[in-house]
């Protein structure tokens, strides 16, 4: 049963990712991205990373995707009045370079994982998700060993916030 579900989610993720790639309509691409994010969250659940799965749902599906849809809707209200075209239909340029870079990265990662020797990873590290949750460990570690990165992320967010507020504030042109 589990392998079947696993493969089903992989197929869902890959197909929806391909739709994102090949769809010219930005709105369809955004909705398809929803399925991709959802499929990846499901894959996280299946490999036992429950915390990351929830984070994926909250941050990507709940936050980023809604932001993306808002962006699409707010910037394309009535289409482009000048040439009568709807800006929601995008066009692809420089396909060759994009394809080359993506293929290079894919080939690198594919061969890396295909040839990698995963003997160092002990299989007993992973317990069944029904009895074991990573959330508590992550929470404890964030407040003990990794408290500094956790805190300085605040500086990162602060800088981002100031930057976003400054860049989006109104100025007389």
């Amino acid at each position: 049963m589990i392998p079947f579900v696993f493969i089903a989610f992989i197929v869902l993720t890959v197909i929806s990712a391909c739709v994102v790639l090949w769809s010219n309509n930005v709105l369809y691409a955004a909705f398809s991205l929803l399925l991709t994010f959802f499929g990846i969250a499901a894959l996280y659940v299946l490999v036992g990373a429950d915390f990351i799965a929830i984070t994926q749902l909250l941050v990507y599906v709940g936050g980023i995707l809604v932001l993306l849809l808002f962006g699409v809707m707010l910037t394309n209200q009535n289409g482009n009045k000048e040439n009568g075209k709807n800006d929601i239909i995008g066009t692809n340029t420089n396909r060759l370079i994009g394809f080359a870079v993506a293929f290079g990265l894919f080939a690198l990662l594919f061969f890396t994982f295909a040839k990698a020797n995963f003997v160092n990873i002990q299989s007993n590290l992973f317990e069944s998700i029904e009895t074991f949750s990573t959330t508590q460990n992550i929470g404890v570690l964030l407040m003990t060993d990794f408290v500094l990165p956790f805190e300085v992320s605040g500086v990162l967010l602060m800088a981002t916030l100031i930057g976003a507020a400054y860049l989006s504030s109104k100025t007389k042109v």
Partner: peptide
């Protein structure tokens, strides 16, 4: 932190 600041 450095990069985001520089983007802005």
């Amino acid at each position: 932190i450095l990069s985001v600041s520089m983007y802005v």
